[in-house]
């Protein structure tokens, strides 16, 4: 599903070039639940951005769901993010003016799915994360855990190949965090490919496999 071959990422910082990734080679199979763990500055955020197609590698190859992503145009990258990646963020990143249902619909809006169909899919996704009765609520009317469930429903809406979660429990208390982790496990058992990025080794161990990052390399 995800194939990274000798991927490097360099940033120009003034006169110096900083390497955030120094030749990462890794692969994640379909249906796997993998965590990427490492201290801050280890390059795990950079790796996550690359996997999420928010960025492209400086060198190396990245094949996502059979498509070489490293040389795609900006527009095509947006389409890949839309259809192949489902993002779950630490701070949920729901759009505050939209209802839960409308938030879940957003990826489908950009996919050009007609409204009635969108509604139907979004309702199904809210049901799947256990929030069928919160469809009309705005994010500020929901608890943290509920917000993250809405965000997960949104990530699932376009039936992505990979669910990419960046510290999904970081803004939640431990009980709610646990519920979210259970939801991920349920989704995994239903066949989703999940990549969990975290700096907590505790959380990372809950995945099937751990990719440890240190100084821009996989260790």
């Amino acid at each position: 599903m995800i194939e990274l071959i000798n991927v490097t990422k360099e940033y120009q910082m003034g006169d110096t070039v900083v390497a955030a990734l120094r030749g990462v080679t890794s692969s994640i199979g379909k249906g796997e639940f993998v965590s990427i763990v490492g201290p801050s500055g280890s390059g795990k955020s950079t790796l996550m951005n690359l996997i999420g197609c928010l960025d492209t590698p400086t060198h190396g190859r990245y094949v996502l769901a059979g498509e070489a992503v490293e040389k795609l145009s900006i527009d095509r990258l947006a389409e890949v993010r839309n259809t192949t990646i489902g993002f779950v963020f630490q701070t949920f990143n729901l759009l505050p003016r939209l209802t839960a249902l409308e938030n879940v619909e957003v990826p489908l809006v950009y996919a050009g799915v007609p409204r009635a169909q969108r509604r139907e899919v979004a309702r199904a996704m809210l049901e799947r994360v256990g929030l069928p009765d919160r469809a009309r609520h705005k994010p500020n009317e929901l608890s943290g855990g509920q917000r993250q469930r809405v965000a997960i429903a949104r990530a699932l809406a376009s039936k992505p190949a990979v669910l990419l979660a960046d510290e999904p429990t970081g803004a939640l208390d431990s009980v709610t965090g646990e519920e979210i982790m259970e939801l991920f496990h349920t989704l995994h058992s239903e066949g989703s490919t999940i990549v969990l990025v975290t700096h907590e080794p505790e959380l990372a161990r809950r995945a099937e496999r751990i990719i440890r990052m240190h100084d821009g390399e996989v260790v």
């Binding site: 527009d75 389409e79 993002f87």
Partner: peptide, 16 residues
């Protein structure tokens, strides 16, 4: 800015 970032992450192209 953040809304724009979210929309982009969810599949909005620059032209969108």
């Amino acid at each position: 800015t953040r809304e724009i970032g979210v929309r982009m992450a969810l599949g909005a192209r620059p032209r969108d």
